[in-house]
Design a protein around this nucleic acid. Sequence first.
DNA 1: CTTAAAACCACCCGTTCGGGGAATTGACAG
DNA 2: CTGTCAATTCCCCGAACGGGTGGTTTTAAG
Lengths: 218, 218
Amino acid sequence: MPLRLLIADNERLFRQSLRKLLEGTRDIRVVAEAADGQEAVLKAQSTQPDIALLDVRMPKMDGIKAAKLMASLVPKIKILMLSIHDDDEKIISALRAGAMGYILKDADQKDFLDILRNAYLGKTHASPYLANLTISRRPGQPRTAEDRKGQFIEKYNLTEQELKILHLLAEGLSNEEMSRMVNLSRETIKMHLKALFRKLQVKNRTEAAVLAVREIVG
Amino acid sequence: MPLRLLIADNERLFRQSLRKLLEGTRDIRVVAEAADGQEAVLKAQSTQPDIALLDVRMPKMDGIKAAKLMASLVPKIKILMLSIHDDDEKIISALRAGAMGYILKDADQKDFLDILRNAYLGKTHASPYLANLTISRRPGQPRTAEDRKGQFIEKYNLTEQELKILHLLAEGLSNEEMSRMVNLSRETIKMHLKALFRKLQVKNRTEAAVLAVREIVG
DNA sequence: CTTAAAACCACCCGTTCGGGGAATTGACAG
DNA sequence: CTGTCAATTCCCCGAACGGGTGGTTTTAAG
């Protein structure tokens, strides 16, 4: 089966030329495109790609935040960040947000494909000859994060759904935005929030978000 | 000049007997009492005591949160936490919240007075003979925290007032609660919040609180 | 003294929250 | 098939939020 890829970049031209480039391969298939962060998260959930290629700078929601949300909403997805600058301080943020690697936009096509395939295979380190590319592995949190999540759930008796909502809340999303993000009605979101406030013993979303940041999302 | 003390505990009897006990001394004067966390923070600002003695468990706002707010609103105040349990996990929270020490409620009177006086002098370690007391120093953050604060202010071009409001926000307070806390009108709070949202480039209080937790209050 | 910036307060207004009750659906055990 | 339990959705409604405009006072700088 081919590598199923999602491309998120605000420039249609870039997306399409990338798609064109990848049509020349037999093992990589673009299953979704997104023009902004929100759309990217939504499509990641609906199409369940193997890898999401996210531009750091995007309208509505930047790539960092989108990466965080994807990591919690589509746990098995592999994320690669795209950017123009290599010394961007956002590299760190991206990697901490769950990204496996970081690709410069002016990378050589061949190197680019190599990175995609390596990421698919779980290889998180950059090959030594990929000199003009910055790539690094996800911090050793995947398992640890799972554990923290589990402990958190049982500590407060949360359901999976509630935890998911809590992640969204910690990104500062409104009820409306959350509802679109997980494809539920605002009312359902509200109900989950009520349950969360009760279980976490807080009295509003701000306190809940702060608690979430301190205890799980970091 | 005597040591000016604030006592915060929900039990009036406890407060009064403690006051009685301290009247027997010449160097310690109780300048304020509070029955809950909110009142404690308010009186700490108005009376500017040297030391605040906070019960961990209080109505409206617990001692931990009160300690955090005091630390940011009345920087030079020294905080001692009171509790019944010694193995309370809240001890860590208290110390991280800015408390200098932790006193058990069944402590010997003499030891209790010693701790008060030592805290006043800046001695943060427990004397070895205070066996049934748990006391520990404030983590080495006072200077570091100041630095972080300064960097944060210049990074986002914040004013002192705005930073103060941000601290309150990060505790999940409503505009109304903040206004009472710093003795300003709700409208003024709203104005500072608007400025904060703009400068931090966030679009609501939740995002602002999350950012604050990540970058300053930890 | 003048100007500018910060801080403070107020009113209007639309949106969002958050709590309450109640109806619907789906899954699953009895 | 049926009870029932959890998840979802809708409606109502008061409170809180967030944006805009306008105005006064205080502070600092020129």
